[in-house]
Amino acid sequence: MPIFVVHMNYEAYKQLFDEILDNPNPGYPYNNEQYFNYTRLNKSRMRRWDKQLVLDEKLVNRIKEISERQHWIIITEPWCGDAAHIIPFLIRMTEQNDGISYDIQLRDTPPLLIESYLTAGTKSIPKLIVRDMAGNDLFVWGPRPVGAQTLREQLKADQADAEASKVALQNWYNEDRGKSLQEELVRRFLR
């Protein structure tokens, strides 16, 4: 069974994937073949984004201009498909300014911070919480870009099956290449 860490950096988060995938008897929910396979796929997606992602110059400049220290909390889980397309971008953003620290927290591991950041009453992830150093929330973003959310809601309304929905969202993220996420965050940082 993997060791779950409440707070972690990106390297520890990626190590968690390896612990899950290398374990012949992974714990819940990874003992479910579907969740296990999501995790394997998401590891591959993150690795691809780590190599290919390009941050928008406007966003990079805005992040570099941030003069007050910030702490970003990213709530996620290895099985989350949306997170695999978003977390690499968020981490790369934090690397643009030494005044930004971050930690990754698992949605389903205490202290269950997600309970304070529900989306329409659900524990939807990933979730980005940007705080000042006094612990005040500056803004919260997530669980996915507006375009992906609109697509998800349309697929649900159309009663698309789970596999068709996963493929459609995967295609959306691949075609968008992080552009929508970055545009949304530029608008947040410009407030």
Rank of each mutant, 00 (worst) to 15 (best):
G81M: 11
G81V: 09
D82L: 10
D82N: 10
A83C: 01
A84E: 03
A84I: 02
I87K: 08
L90P: 14
L90H: 08
R92D: 04
T94S: 14
T94V: 13
T94N: 06
E95A: 10
E95C: 01
N97P: 07
D98T: 09
G99Q: 12
S101F: 10
S101P: 08
Y102D: 04
D103W: 01
L106M: 15
P110C: 05
P110E: 06
L113G: 05
I114S: 04
I114H: 03
E115Q: 03
S116M: 12
L118Y: 09
T119V: 08
A120I: 06
A120N: 14
A120V: 07
A120E: 15
T122F: 01
T122E: 05
I125R: 06
I125H: 09
V130G: 02
V130Y: 03
D132F: 06
D132P: 11
M133F: 03
A134L: 13
G135I: 03
N136D: 05
N136T: 01
D137G: 07
L138D: 04
V140R: 14
P145Y: 09
P145S: 01
P145Q: 01
G147A: 09
A148L: 07
Q149C: 02
L151N: 04
R152S: 07
R152K: 06
E153Y: 14
L155D: 13
L155Y: 10
L155H: 11
K156C: 12
K156E: 15
A157R: 15
Q159P: 01
A162N: 12
S165F: 00
K166V: 08
A168Q: 02
Q170W: 02
N171K: 15
N171S: 10
W172F: 15
Y173G: 06
